[in-house]
Write a protein that binds this DNA or RNA. Structure first.
Lengths: 215, 215
DNA sequence: GTCTATAGCAGGATAGAC
DNA sequence: GTCTATCCTGCTATAGAC
């Protein structure tokens, strides 16, 4: 019993600390020593539990990142339950809310987006997991929700580009915090995050909002 | 003469190869040996010319990245010369065009955005340079161009969030190529890049384009 | 399952010849 | 300015005791 406990706890601590460090510094900048120190266990534990460093990285995605992405999608879905039918505005707001405020702690949100951006910009094996198991199904669901509101003539590609654009904003305001803060002069307080949710919702609905005729 | 020549050529080759490698793999994943091999010079050359690896990285930004960012801004400015007054549509299109088609080769565009995203998501000393010398002034200019078209009551912050959002799209469609391709099924041909320019322009102007009443 | 000890190698950096 | 040779640190991974 205490054996199994130790096993699980060590493995869990390793996954947690590894994820935090990989997110903050990137795969190559983190050493196994650093991870095992942070997890208060022995250097050899990584090789025992995961075989090698790279496998630990992949396991971080399988055991931590992907489940969290699913929780985010659940949170998104719940936001929409109140609505009789998902209007584009409701979808945009629920999306922004789930990713910018949502169920995650600040630390978790940070981890999540840092790791995602690292994979998006430099695809390793983990990107396959991320795209195939999380992004594609989620985008498909979003497409289904938005399609009824779109002009008849717009195809799936148009829809996907729209979704990718909302996604780009959500991602950007999460991972480029340092730059956003430097440019706007605002820290990521609850108030500012709510302001960002408003902004993303509006921009998704009306762009710059200059009231130009629609075509 | 040949001395000075050799000096400059070696230094230039180092900067070029270093930038390419840092962009593709990230700072920590690249070794000085790898760089000097690619530049066909001796291991000690990095320390001779730049002092150390980190300084070489910073010099890549000073001597390569920032000048290229200036060229992009020039290209953006030129796109707008034909217009009597810069309408929001013209600004959005010029922005998307400069960054997605623009004056850079595919390889240069790739380098540029990879390095930028690395800095945006994990600020090192180079982020200060990037934000202070490139982003902030550029955003200020954009703000000046867009302000006349905005509703009276919207302040600078609203304007900045709008600019950051356009920027987020431009950036995203450049750095997340792998994922975009995986999701849309489209490679980054000239045709698709032009399609993206259209999309970014439209999304910037009207968002999802569902024709919702403006407020 | 967890530890110590260590093999074996790659990394950044430098001294000094040319 | 460029080279070779080398130092020394820190890395991943493993063998083997407990």
């Amino acid at each position: 019993m205490s054996k199994a406990d130790n096993h699980d706890l060590t493995k869990d601590r390793l996954l947690d600390e590894a994820e935090a460090l990989f997110a903050r510094k990137g795969y190559d900048a983190v050493s196994v020593r650093e991870i095992t120190n942070a997890a208060c266990c022995n250097l050899a534990a990584v090789n025992y539990h995961f075989g090698n460093k790279k496998n630990l990285y992949l396991e971080v995605f399988r055991a931590r990142w992907i489940p969290r992405a699913r929780r985010l999608q659940e949170s998104f879905k719940k936001s929409l339950d109140g609505e009789e039918v998902a209007s584009p505005r409701a979808v945009a707001r629920a999306l922004a809310e789930a990713f910018l405020v949502g169920p995650l702690s600040d630390e978790e949100r940070f981890r999540h987006h840092q790791l995602m951006v690292r994979e998006l910009s430099q695809s390793t094996e983990a990107l396959e997991l991320v795209v195939d198991e999380v992004m594609r199904p989620f985008f498909k669901k979003l497409a289904g929700m938005l399609r009824p509101s779109m002009p008849e003539e717009s195809g799936t590609e148009h829809l996907m580009l729209n979704i990718l654009s909302m996604f780009a904003m959500v991602l950007h305001f999460n991972f480029a915090r340092a730059a956003v803060t430097r440019v706007t002069g605002r820290e990521y307080t609850e108030a500012f995050k709510n302001r960002l949710v408003e902004h993303i919702t509006e921009f998704s609905l009306t762009g710059l909002g200059v009231g130009e005729d629609l075509h």
